[in-house]
Amino acid sequence: MPAPSELLESNLLLKALRRADRSLLEPHLELVEYGRGDTVFAAGGDISYITFPCDRTVVTLLIAMADGRSAETATIGREGAVGGIVSNGGLPASTQAVVQLGGQVLRIDSSRLQEAKRLSEPVRNLFSRYADCLLAQVLQSVACNALHPIESRCLRWLMTLQDRLGSDVLPVTQELLAAMLGVQRTYLTRILRTLQDQGLIEVGRGRITVIARAAIEKAACECHGSVRRHFDAVLGTVYGPTGRFIAFEPPPTPRPGRKGRVVPFVEDADS
């Protein structure tokens, strides 16, 4: 199904592109609908598409073990994309991408995106910066999972999801959260009860409500803040009143000037 033009505004990477660069991608983008639990790609499988979650759609990258356990390495919403972003695409997947919150996505053949990168320096700049941010999120998650207690990891995950939804009410089940954190549900239930008793969250059926975001930020480990600061520095993230990502304003791409001097790449304001 061809992608409606207005839908490009609901993914921040596509929204950040200037009109001329969007035109390199727009004819090749297609609209796909995913439900919760659907697999975007499996570990070991070829990645033939780059997928851009739109609006409230959220995709999680998981590492699954032989004993059936799994753990989250990155959570991606409307601020990003999955599938060959760090690499050049067309390579076997090292993780499984599973839809956490269903909805619409835009996707493009990986070869089409590589061609757009070849033709446009601003496209290369934007996607290289996002790839760096995604890698930073993955690496911070690895460190957090290894070094921090489950309470801190749980709060980090909830704040990450809230950033992408812009809502205090997070439509997530305890089963899903336990799978993301790689723990048993009974153990997670005790952790959530403790966090609720502290007045940080409220646990309901099929949802977790953030009660005190500022207090959660103080109680959590430094990992969530580190990733947000990296997004700010590399992509120029703009936040809404609720703390949701609403736009990217990445710095311009430097280009060589005379006698080796580097000068900023300035985009045409009318393009």
Rank of each mutant, 00 (worst) to 15 (best):
E9H: 06
T237M: 10
V82G: 05
H224E: 13
F231I: 06
G68K: 07
C144K: 12
L62N: 00
D197Q: 10
A16M: 03
S271W: 10
T57H: 05
G77V: 12
P122W: 00
H28Y: 14
S226P: 02
R244W: 03
R118M: 14
K15I: 00
A220R: 08
F265C: 03
E249P: 00
Q196H: 12
G90C: 00
P171E: 00
S10R: 15
A116M: 07
A66R: 11
G243P: 03
V99K: 08
Q140Y: 08
G83I: 11
S94H: 09
E115S: 04
K259T: 05
L13K: 07
V238K: 09
S120Q: 07
R164S: 09
V58K: 07
C133P: 03
R164L: 10
P92H: 06
A64F: 02
G240W: 07
R36Q: 15
A3C: 12
K15L: 01
F52L: 01
L158V: 13
V123W: 07
A64S: 11
F127L: 10
V82D: 06
G199A: 11
G83N: 14
G45Q: 15
R213S: 15
D197I: 03
A3S: 12
Q184P: 05
A16K: 01
G236P: 02
G257W: 07
S271L: 14
C154R: 09
Q174T: 12
R112N: 00
S110Y: 10
R112P: 00
F127Q: 01
L8M: 15
S5H: 10
V98R: 15
I50D: 01
L134K: 05
R255G: 01
D168P: 09
G80L: 08
C144H: 12
P251I: 00
D46F: 12
N145G: 13
G80W: 02
I47P: 08
V234Q: 08
Q100N: 12
S94T: 14
R56I: 04
T194I: 02
E26S: 11
S5E: 13
E9N: 12
S23W: 05
L106T: 03
R228P: 04
Q162V: 03
G80E: 05
I47H: 08
A233H: 09
L91F: 11
R255F: 00
T173A: 07
C133I: 02
V266H: 12
L29G: 07
G257N: 09
K117S: 05
V266R: 14
R190P: 01
A178E: 06
T95E: 12
F248C: 01
A3R: 01
Q174I: 09
Y187H: 14
Y130A: 01
T209Q: 12
E217H: 02
I63V: 13
T209A: 10
G257D: 09
F52H: 03
T160R: 14
R164T: 04
L101C: 08
L161A: 04
Q96T: 15
H148L: 15
D163L: 05
L14A: 03
L17Q: 00
R124L: 06
E202G: 14
E249T: 00
L170D: 02
